[in-house]
Design a protein around this nucleic acid. Structure first.
Lengths: 340, 340
DNA sequence: CTGAAAGCGCTTACAG
DNA sequence: CTGAAAGCGCTTACAG
């Protein structure tokens, strides 16, 4: 039978409140010698505080919920998710919180909302929620503080994003400076705000440079490598193909690399590729991937800090982070420009 | 103010036990019309069950703890961790459990043990514990059921592994069949059982084929790409270099790829590379990586199933999974054999 | 500084 | 089937 504070109190013939004060070093002081004896007998009895009981009594769980709207898929494959999660874990650790990872996702929104508001967490970080999903609003109504990373909180929560328009703009400027005029796009999951903004930015920036926006050169509409591979294979095997591709994620770029490799299309000689995220994948791909860096870890960390602030002060500010282009080896002048 | 079962009971003028029975559909039956009215007013009042209170009363939390001994590092970079986690999440979801991810790791074992035994989880899955760590034993003493994936549980828990000896053997047999005699190894983190077994198997299998085991051809001793890159750069720039490398993980192989790329060493023409894990990285690398597959998802899933069984029946069996070689494009006959 | 007691929001024998 | 009550293991005003 595990020891409880009652057992310690009994052994020492003192009250359980004193034991609690001694163990927690507050909120009320305890005579030094009493404190010492409490701690000692706690150790002797192998006492382990029950966090559930403590949470119920105190109303704080010291755990933060993390939900992705596509958890099952992302948990293993998304370098975006990984980057955010690392920032979250690092910061949560500093603040002494643990992470509750919901296994259910937005496939079943009602269920997800129930789980998120069942009292197990002090607050929630939602990663890349879908546009127009009712989940955020209902969680907020359930009085659970939320911070969002990578997506629109639709006014329900502070959100932490990077500037997608800027990110795509610098990618395209880079390609245009190199002399590219035939530029394609691998778009991301349309239900996610980041993907839509990047797509819009892609189209508007091509237009800005007077370049054609060809619908058949906008492929993908997913955030994974597999899909990009299949569609890039088709795109690149046509004679009339682009000389550069801007991808909505590094994972997408990985799919393009594979397609190019199989078709004997050389990167960057025959095809320049720009990724998005600057995730670890960008360094695994060879030639190393030129990528629009968004500071995922920072975004995850900032969301965590904001959430904890929200718990304490009832308010916190969201933030949009700057993006920058990390130029590596996957982009070069296009053939026709280079040859003369 | 959020509604509680007391409020529902009051509104309906019935007892809270009846409300509880109605809401949970058990363990005692309730008149159908009462049940319906309870559920209806619960909805009207916006009632949300408090899982913390329920856990305290029932003794079950419906959450499973997942700990890696190197959480902060792995959460973002280890494809091994990801693979396991995916299996765990998938299976936990089916069984209706959520996952508590500990942010602290074995850097501070006392802290970790305290967190693991604080009552927030019904059981624990520990991923790749270090050899000889006191954590598992102390958690078991704390009466928290544990399952281990990828590592030695030292008798404390059912563990789920793959057969490292077999895995390395088939890798080396494959290379020997291709004609390689100059084979190097990128070893993994020595404090992990898998890494040590693979290293031993590497040495014994080379010996079995009468091939030299050169200490200067055993590099790495980490499970990450960065370190492998640096060391492979050195190894491969010597004139007297191996024609094949067996890596302790796909992440290690990624480092070797990069080194080879930068040195202009062509894979598989100048160098055959075999990875280990068959993680998503194996498909991202180009040429696609020949890799020893260990069924990480299955291992994670099996550990989860076993853990839940352990909760119910007090006992469960560990299992060692078979490995198989997934032959892709990163291995070929060595130059000297091919040319004649 | 210490103690007696209420309370956190549920579940679950135990009577009826 | 329903109710009154104890209990899960803590925290925390409130008196003293």
């Amino acid at each position: 039978m595990a020891a409880k504070i009652k057992d310690i109190a009994k052994a020492l013939n003192i009250s359980i409140s004193t034991v609690s004060y001694a163990l927690n070093d507050g909120p009320i002081n305890v005579h030094e010698d009493v404190r010492v004896r409490v701690i000692e007998t706690a150790r002797e009895l192998g006492y382990r505080p029950n966090r559930i009981a403590r949470s119920l009594a105190s109303g704080r769980t010291m755990t933060l919920g993390v939900a992705s709207f596509v958890m099952t898929e992302w948990v293993a494959t998304s370098s975006y998710f990984q980057g955010c999660l690392r920032g979250i874990v690092t910061e949560a650790k500093r603040m002494d919180y643990d992470i509750l990872l919901y296994t259910h996702d937005a496939e079943d929104p009602d269920r997800l909302v129930d789980l998120m508001t069942d009292g197990r967490v002090d607050g929630l970080i939602v990663i890349a929620p879908f546009e127009g999903s009712p989940v955020l609003g209902r969680v907020a109504e359930g009085n659970v503080p939320v911070a969002v990373v990578g997506g629109n909180s639709e006014g329900w929560a502070p959100s932490f994003n990077s500037d997608n328009h800027h990110g795509i703009r610098i990618a395209i400027e880079h390609l245009v400076e190199l002399g590219h005029t035939r530029i394609a796009h691998v778009a991301g999951e349309p239900s996610m705000k980041d993907a839509m903004e990047r797509l819009e930015a892609f189209q508007s920036n091509l237009a800005r440079f007077g370049l054609p926006v060809r619908q058949d050169w906008i492929i993908g509409h997913h955030f994974n490598a597999e899909n990009s591979y299949t569609e890039a294979l088709e795109l690149l095997s046509k004679p009339d193909r682009p000389t550069a591709i801007v991808c909505a994620s590094d994972d997408n770029a990985a799919g393009v690399y594979r397609a190019a490799w199989e078709l004997g299309v050389s990167i960057p000689d025959d095809l320049s590729v720009v990724g998005y995220d600057d995730s670890p994948t960008a360094e695994v791909l060879l030639p190393r991937l030129t990528s629009v860096r968004q500071p995922l870890q920072q975004m995850g960390a900032a969301a965590t800090v904001a959430l904890i602030e929200l718990l304490r002060k009832q308010q916190a500010q969201g933030r949009t982070f700057e993006t920058e282009l990390v130029t590596r080896q996957s982009t070069a002048r296009p053939m026709e420009v280079r040859i003369p």
